[in-house]
Design a protein around this nucleic acid. Structure first.
Length: 673
DNA sequence: CTAGGGTTAG
């Protein structure tokens, strides 16, 4: 590369340029690297450069050491082409860089994006020093070549060159990135031999290393042994405990640390989010804004808190954070907009999700952004939109990955686009070089199963070139419910009972199917099995957000202050709906009780309670947004369609799988779910 | 030089 560059600049090199002629060249390069700048060259650069160039032009031949500050300056300013010119200038004067100068040049090339030239310079240095090795180690680490970094470090070690506090943090980070526990521990040992046990940076790197390889105990031991702890040392340990779900310990550390910065707060917030504690994440975010005026949330903080809104479907909360994002000037950040897309989609507002997507400039729409939008359409049952978004993505020359295809295939599946879905599945490896994984096979099983093609789905599973996991059998079992195919359901369930014996959902699903078929003996058998294995089933619940405040309802819940009003409304509802042509579908009750009782049982489903509450407490133009922790039941689905018609309401229901938009007596899913 | 990170089916 470097050789190429030198020969390509022969027009300059054919006549050795006098150093003074460099300035105009430099000037032109600065101009081209900053196209928006109308002034020829910012004066501080000119004068600094002039000062730095003086010794080179005064001495003939120039002294080697005069180049060092020049390269350092160019590294800081990221003026690659200038660096090449100066490098050429040295070559013309027959100057071989020393190890010291070589280190500066490596840094200059590396920081300007030309790793290849950095390596070429490095390889040509005759008597390498620790400094030189540090510069190339740093380059390889930053470019994401951890194995190269480790390799180079081994060479350095063999040459007897001492590592220092600019060596070990990078080498450790590389060991961490490839999860090489053995190598990392060797490096740890070597660092101790060089007397580095009191270095705070190294200590933090070590904590992070032990955290990432899953040896939290050792991470904590490192922390305890450290005499000088940086804020980052605390942060690394907090992140470690959060990752292991040890929330109390993380909270204790956070409470005890002498100083906190934005990373500390973000680590806590994202820890809460990742452990499903959305409320805690949101309130800590508020507390941070209120109590610690020293810290300023950045894009990472925003990305950590948004999934909490998504998790609890807290749309108003999410909107307020969106306004905050605009206020602090983060709206141009692509990652933030991507997190907003997912948040709005999961909070039920596809329109807002699309706005965020549109806000990202075309050339900045990256893989994550496209994936977020494709998945958003999929979860709202807009399969065709998922497909066209995918096609636009390919047209924009962004290559799809495994996540793209899970979104695309699930979009096809939710919309009943069986042929299209199968076509994409068959092309994912051949056309797009994305190897199908478990989730993709599960999507195809879902695609076929949902369309009632259970036998094909089973045959498909038999042909999968890997051991089918719980997701694949789970998709088959869920699909059986609609077609009421007990034979295949039992087969799928028996696989699942072995693969994930503690997952209550599988027992419930099969039990419900038995109940629908009136096979109460089998229902009892399954219930007994649940009981004797001590498996807890998670109770159904729904919540609705009104004026930004969530209201939670359990199935059959009578504890609510407005319970009486709610039940009155629900009780009056069947008559109203029956007048509009509805028959309650009591097969969804699934207890061995009388028909009349069943009817009563139906009206206490949590999603109905939440909707009744919403009808009572909002004005007619408000869209009701309900979130349910399980799949919506068939009777509720029918009833909500009628409610949307009778009350003229728009109702959006998010269940565990997808969204249902009810309007004027119809649902966006077209009853295909 | 170290710590916090968006997109994933059923």
């Amino acid at each position: 590369m470097l050789r190429g560059l030198l020969s390509s600049s022969t027009t300059i090199l054919s006549k050795p340029p006098h150093p003074e002629t460099l300035l105009p060249i430099i000037q032109s390069h600065v101009d081209s690297s900053q196209p928006k700048c109308t002034t020829p060259m910012p004066s501080p650069y000119t004068s600094t450069l002039q000062t730095l160039l003086e010794p080179i032009s005064d001495q003939n031949p120039p002294h080697l050491l005069s180049y060092a500050p020049l390269f350092q300056f160019l590294t800081a300013q990221n003026f690659l082409k200038l660096g090449q010119q100066i490098h050429a200038h040295m070559t013309i004067h027959g100057l071989q860089p020393s190890a010291f100068l070589g280190a500066k040049m490596v840094a200059m090339y590396a920081s300007s994006g030309d790793l290849e030239s950095a390596v070429t310079v490095f390889d040509k240095i005759k008597n390498p020093t620790s400094l030189l090795y540090n510069s190339i180690i740093r380059a390889y680490t930053n470019y994401g070549y951890p194995l190269k970094t480790i390799d180079i470090y081994c060479k350095m070690h063999c040459l007897g060159l001492k590592g220092d506090h600019f060596t070990f943090p990078f080498v450790l980070k590389s060991c961490t990135n490839v999860l090489d526990g053995w190598m990392g521990k060797c490096v740890h040992g070597q660092s101790l031999r060089f007397g580095m046990e009191f270095d705070a940076y190294l200590g933090t790197s070590l904590i992070d290393f032990y955290v990432k390889i899953g040896e939290l105990r050792d991470a904590n031991k490192m922390f305890d042994l450290m005499t000088v702890r940086a804020v980052s040392s605390w942060n690394a340990l907090i992140a470690g405990y959060m990752k292991e779900g040890e929330i109390r310990v993380a909270e204790d550390l956070f409470g005890r640390m002498p100083r906190r910065n934005i990373v500390s707060w973000t680590a806590m917030i994202s820890g809460y989010t990742q452990n499903g504690l959305a409320e805690e994440a949101l309130s800590l975010f508020d507390e941070m804004l209120k109590e610690d005026s020293e810290v300023k949330p950045n894009w990472v903080t925003i990305m950590s808190v948004l999934p909490a809104c998504a998790h609890s479907a807290a749309l108003e909360r999410g909107r307020r954070i969106n306004e905050y994002v605009n206020r602090i000037g983060l709206e141009s950040n692509t990652s933030v907009q991507t997190a907003l897309i997912a948040m709005y989609a999961k909070c039920g507002s596809l329109v807002d999700a699309r706005c965020c997507f549109n806000r990202i400039p075309e050339n900045e729409k990256n893989l994550c952004a496209w994936n977020a939008m494709i998945t958003a359409y999929a979860s709202h049952g807009q399969g065709l939109e998922s497909v066209s978004t995918f096609e636009n993505m390919v047209r924009a020359a962004v290559y799809p990955d495994a996540i793209t295809f899970t979104g695309l295939l699930s979009g096809c599946s939710h919309s009943g686009l069986v042929q299209i879905g199968l076509k994409y599945f068959n092309s994912m490896q051949t056309v797009y070089s994305v190897k199908p994984r478990h989730e993709h096979y599960a999507c195809v099983v879902d695609l076929l199963g949902r369309a009632g093609r259970l036998v094909e789905a089973k045959e498909f599973i038999d042909k999968i070139p890997m051991q089918p996991g719980p997701s694949i059998w789970g998709a088959l079992l869920a699909a059986c419910r609609k077609s009421r195919n007990l034979e295949i359901a039992e087969m799928a369930a028996n696989e699942l009972f072995v693969l994930e014996p503690e997952n209550s959902c599988n027992y419930i699903l099969l039990s419900n199917m038995y109940a629908e078929a009136g096979m109460w003996k089998e229902v009892d058998k399954l219930r007994a099995r649940l009981k004797c294995q001590g498996i807890k089933k998670n109770p159904g619940c729904s919540w609705i957000e009104i004026n930004g405040k969530p209201h939670l309802f359990l199935s059959g819940d009578a504890s609510h202050p407005q319970a009486k009003e709610i039940y009155n409304l629900m009780q009056a509802l069947p008559e109203k709906i029956k007048a509009a042509g509805y028959t309650p579908n009591t097969s969804f009750v699934l207890h061995d009780i009388s028909e009349e009782e069943k009817e009563h049982n139906l009206i206490t489903h949590s999603e109905k309670l939440a909707i009744a509450f919403g009808l009572i407490n909002t004005t007619p133009e408000v869209v009701l947004r309900i979130t349910k922790n399980l799949r919506i039941c068939g009777d509720c689905h029918t009833v909500i369609k009628f409610i949307s018609k009778i009350y003229g309401r728009e109702i959006v229901v998010r269940d565990v799988n997808r969204f249902h938009h009810f309007r004027e007596g119809a649902c966006s899913c077209g009853d295909y779910w």
